[in-house]
Computed example of a mutant assay.
Amino acid sequence: MTNLNTEIFDHDTDVDVAHKINTMELDNWINHLKYIKKELVNLISICSKDLKYKLGDDSVVERFHKKEVENETLLNALHKYSNSRSNIMECEDTECDMVFIKEHESYRRSYLYHLDKYRRLKDEFFNKVQGKFAFLSID
């Protein structure tokens, strides 16, 4: 959400500070998912060439494709969520603020879960590649 000034001032309330920090965090998530999107394109390209035959495992490419779709889905959801945060300025009571804060926590869990699954998949891929190349270089 680019509409909200994220500079924290001495006169900001705790809730204002929380909203500003959440906005900065959300921008970070979106930028990170954009990077993952590019990284997945590269990983899929690498796997789609000769490497998938050397690995003997087509499921790697399929799992990267699936992660690519999941990444795009989450990225789109975060963009929509970012746009909806423009209504924060209209909050006049704590109940309204808490709705935004709880929603943010929900997106945080989704983002962290996605990130964990992506990292595990990438680690598994690199372990396979490293193992295959280490095995091939022994000759």
Rank of each mutant, 00 (worst) to 15 (best):
D57W: 05
E70R: 15
D123A: 14
M98G: 08
I44P: 00
Y81N: 03
H114W: 08
S59P: 01
S110R: 12
Y81A: 02
M98E: 12
Y53I: 03
L112V: 10
C91N: 13
R85A: 06
K67M: 11
C91V: 11
Y111T: 09
E68R: 04
L112A: 09
D116K: 13
C47V: 03
L78G: 01
E70I: 14
D50T: 08
E72P: 06
D58E: 14
E39A: 09
F100K: 04
D57I: 13
R63Y: 08
Y53V: 08
D93H: 07
N42D: 15
N87T: 03
N76K: 08
R109L: 08
C96T: 05
L43S: 00
N76G: 12
C96D: 05
L115G: 02
S59N: 04
L51R: 07
E105G: 12
L74T: 02
Y113W: 09
Y81P: 11
M98C: 09
V41P: 02
S82R: 01
D97W: 00
E92C: 15
N71K: 04
F125A: 11
F100G: 07
K54Q: 12
R119N: 12
D123Y: 14
K54E: 13
H104G: 07
M89V: 15
E92R: 15
L115A: 06
V99Y: 10
G56V: 07
R85Y: 01
V60N: 06
V69M: 05
E70M: 13
D93F: 14
M89I: 13
I88R: 01
G56A: 11
R85I: 10
D57K: 09
L75Y: 01
D93A: 03
F125T: 12
V99W: 02
E62M: 03
V69I: 08
D116M: 14
S82V: 00
L51S: 06
M89P: 03
G56R: 05
K80G: 07
L121P: 09
Y113T: 15
D93N: 15
N83H: 11
D123I: 13
Y118G: 04
C91W: 03
D50H: 05
V61D: 00
K80E: 00
K67N: 10
S86M: 08
L74D: 00
L40V: 02
K102R: 04
V69E: 07
K54L: 15
M89D: 14
K49P: 00
Y113S: 15
E105C: 04
L78R: 00
H79T: 06
Y53Q: 11
V60K: 09
K49T: 03
G56T: 08
